[in-house]
Design a protein around this nucleic acid. Structure first.
Lengths: 348, 348
DNA sequence: TTGTAGGCGTTATCAT
DNA sequence: ATGATAACGCCTACAA
């Protein structure tokens, strides 16, 4: 049984090299400070020989900074969160930071707990994709004035960097596509809007679009929770019954898209034939469900990378006013919105 | 602009309560040690008033333990990893631990870096779902004798707790189902086996099954990397050309299943009609792709929970010999393996 | 029962 | 250019 090989400390290195701890520390941190070459060599050798690695915790304690970035995601189960996470993680890693993850599991009450936990580990900044429960208040107290960047979800009264899909543009992409495919009757299905800014923005953009086109378009909306399958099916039936041609459903995100796909299947309908469907959030399986599910795809990794980059800039001392970075989505038109609506309507 | 409200320290509390730091510390950690009620009250009040929260980093530095669990996942992009992660995270949280995540992004070289990074933050234990590059060696050195539990992937010479799907059973589930649906010609498609024990085990179980049934069955295998679409399509065509009826493909995991679905689509084939398909790993979209994709579903959250539980027991001092926990998968038979093979073969 | 003091592993401020 | 030394926030002998 190998004795637990105690990690060597800076003191060990100092002893081994016959210098003081301070010298070792300087060699490590302030390479610029000129050390006598001979000493430098000795220290370097000792470091290598002992396999010395500084203790991040001790450094954090001393410096008040930890080389840690705190990332709070609303729901790690949502592929969107994961994609953002991996983008952010990569960017942080490249800059020498480690990401500490806190998953809310969609429980907004845990939001402040998450921020506080992360904060207590002295994370140097926060990337937040949260529920909007009370992040603002908590950050005032626990944030310690550390930089914050919001992803996908904005919070009122929190004047910080914000990175997100350009939601109105994404909705326009959906709607213009649907209209040019001949659809005239719509239903927007969202998860319960709550305080979630992205959901709200999409709903607003949708309503604005419908309004702007006058009575030629009919647009309704529905908030669909995880247990609302029955209600959802009823809404879909009503939509189809009252439509003047083939109606289309617009889905607020991938989770809802899947619910819609299930509902349509349960009704025995076929996508693109009995109903149109397009969603925000593309997914790797989308091309293969039915005739292919149309979607507006988000540049998720890029969102994550940019969020991290914003944060890193702040950590580098950038003091510019809060920035808002909106990234365009891209349309992937597939069979679920093929131009049958036009045919069905085919006027004289 | 609110002054950054410095977190209050134990010294602040002591001063506020008019006692020594030691007393505060005792009040916090050793509630059993009898304190004069009057003093206890004063300390309690001070703690509350100042909103004092101990600094986990300082505690970790002093105690050598951090209330942190290190979790290394091979690829956070794989839903399997996420599911395990969320199960483990929940169990850890309930026990008062925070999970620190390290994502390898499928780069096995980063495995040791991950373990070391986590270790330097003094995580109290490791949950590893890694590539099998050199985790063993690294743990000897960096693991500091802290408990480890392996998930899904075993490592030679690492005698620790192991939680996983029962792979042979899962393969038997697949194969028996296929056979009773009339299939006789098979292809197993895996990601490159490498050192990954689960992939290897599944491949072995598959081969064993084929062998055991004698020449009535024909079974081939193929290792398919991310860029092997063309080769994959060729293999599928060869499979179909040489088969005596409808052949079936068995997919090693969800990632491969998606690749197979794409290949089948590119060939213009229909699942369950031109080829059978069943995969290990179920997915929420599986019922809606083509006629539904058959799968053996893993109890992923449970795997994560159990892994965490094993670890927590070890942290509680359990010294039992290394355990192996194998969980059964469950078959979800769908259209992609419907019993057409039998019909096609229909002998006299 | 409570306080004093030392140290966990670093870094930074002084001297030297 | 280098070396003592004092923190960082906390815990724990040991002393009182």
């Amino acid at each position: 049984m190998p004795k637990t090989p105690q990690r060597s400390t800076i003191a060990d290195v100092a002893r081994h090299a016959g210098v003081s701890k301070a010298t070792v520390s300087r060699f490590l941190n302030h390479r610029d400070t000129l050390l006598t070459p001979a000493i430098a060599k000795r220290v370097e050798a000792a470091v290598k020989e002992l396999g010395y690695k500084p203790s991040p915790m001790a450094q954090a304690l001393k410096r008040g900074r930890s080389r840690l970035i705190g990332l709070v995601v609303a729901d790690i189960t949502n592929p969107y969160s994961v994609a953002v996470l991996s983008g952010a993680e990569l960017a942080c890693r490249e800059a020498g930071y480690l990401v500490m993850l806190f998953n809310l599991g969609n429980e907004s009450e845990r939001e402040s707990a998450g921020i506080q936990a992360l904060s207590s580990y002295k994370v140097e900044g926060f990337i937040l994709n949260t529920m909007g429960h009370d992040a603002g208040a908590v950050l005032e107290t626990a944030g310690q004035g550390r930089p914050v960047v919001l992803v996908d979800r904005m919070h009122q009264g929190l004047d910080v960097d914000f990175v997100s899909l350009d939601n109105p543009h994404a909705i326009d992409l959906c709607m213009n596509h649907l209209i040019s495919a001949g659809y005239r009757d719509f239903l927007l299905v969202s998860e319960p809007l709550g305080q979630v800014s992205s959901r709200i923005q999409r709903a607003r953009a949708y309503e604005a679009f419908i309004q702007a086109r006058g009575p030629a378009l009919r647009g309704d909306s529905f908030e669909c929770g995880p247990a609302d399958e029955a209600a959802l099916m009823q809404r879909l039936q009503a939509l189809r019954a009252n439509a003047r041609g083939l109606p289309a459903v617009v889905s607020n995100n991938a989770v809802v898209t899947l619910r819609l796909i299930a509902a349509v299947a349960a009704l025995g309908w076929k996508l693109g034939e009995d109903i149109g469907l397009i969603g925000i959030d593309d997914a790797p399986w989308a091309p293969f469900v039915g005739p292919g599910v149309s979607a507006v795809s988000q540049p998720t990794e890029q969102i994550g990378r940019l969020a991290a980059r914003c944060l890193l800039q702040r950590l580098d001392g950038l003091t510019a006013p809060a920035r808002t970075i909106l990234l365009p989505g891209t349309l992937a038109a597939r069979g679920s919105t093929r131009s049958r609506a036009a045919a069905a309507l085919a006027p004289g």
